[in-house]
């Protein structure tokens, strides 16, 4: 069950140096911008960042990277037209990259949340990303052994939360939120709206409150106000 907290700074309090932080979002949809900004202010360093992308423009994850807080990025798609901050740090050898196929990223996070020790998948067989991984042939097909990705913290964005932390999402902003919510010791959600317990139709809840630790209402943001979208 979640605590509803008043500010994003309160929501990210206590994130330790060296933490593995799962951050939801795909492109700019579903990125928990308030929580990331608060994490920059909070100051934890030596972070391992697990997210689909490695920052866009200069805000959000790019700002966290630019502040030198990130030791390693685990992601599927770092290189984009506006990933200049990551590109610079990577080329300077200041951030480590573990490149993970997007389906493996999602499934490794899901596995961590579901208590699965490791799993075999055909994705990546015969490619450079198979190097160093155990290969096994099952029913005539080759598979690679992949291990879970568990977070110390997950920062996600959702549309609505009730007072317990039951979450619903909106359109493609859902993306990694529900799986990341299952896979971290402390799960922190920013939401557009907090509604009373009982106000959400239980049939529509995507992330049940059992997974969620802290919820904060996001600051009102004009569409396009992030300056990139």
């Amino acid at each position: 069950m979640a605590s509803i907290v008043a500010t994003a700074d309160e929501a990210v309090a206590g994130i330790a140096h060296g933490s593995t932080v799962l951050v939801g979002g795909f492109g700019l949809a579903g990125v928990p911008m308030d929580l990331i900004d608060a994490l920059v202010r909070q100051g934890a360093t030596g972070l391992t960042l697990v997210s689909n992308n490695a920052g866009n423009g200069t805000a959000g994850l790019a700002a966290l990277l630019d502040a030198g807080r990130v030791r390693k990025v685990v992601c599927s798609f770092p290189r984009q037209s506006d990933s200049q901050v990551f590109d610079r740090l990577y080329r300077a050898g200041k951030v480590e990259l573990e490149l993970v196929p997007q389906g493996n990223l999602a499934e490794r996070i899901r596995a961590a949340g579901a208590g699965i020790g490791a799993f075999y998948t055909p994705t990546g067989v015969g490619t450079p990303l198979a190097e160093g991984k155990e290969t096994r042939v099952i029913d005539g097909r080759a598979y690679l052994l992949e291990h879970p990705i568990k977070g110390d913290v997950a920062l996600i964005s959702a549309y609505k939360s009730d007072g317990l932390g039951n979450l619903v999402y909106r359109k493609t902003a859902r993306n990694f939120g529900p799986v990341m919510a299952t896979a971290a010791t402390t799960v922190i959600a920013q939401v557009t709206e907090i509604v009373p317990v009982g106000a959400l139709d239980p049939e529509t809840v995507i992330t049940p409150s059992i997974y969620v630790d802290r919820v904060v209402q996001a600051a009102a943001r004009e569409p396009g106000a992030c300056g990139v979208c």
Binding site: S76, F77, P78, R79, Q80, S83, F86, D87, Y90, R91, L97, L99, V100, P101, Q102, G103, N104, T123, G124, T127, L129
Partner: peptide, 8 residues
């Protein structure tokens, strides 16, 4: 800088 996304 490589970027694999969902291609594999």
């Amino acid at each position: 800088i490589p970027a694999v996304g969902g291609a594999m």
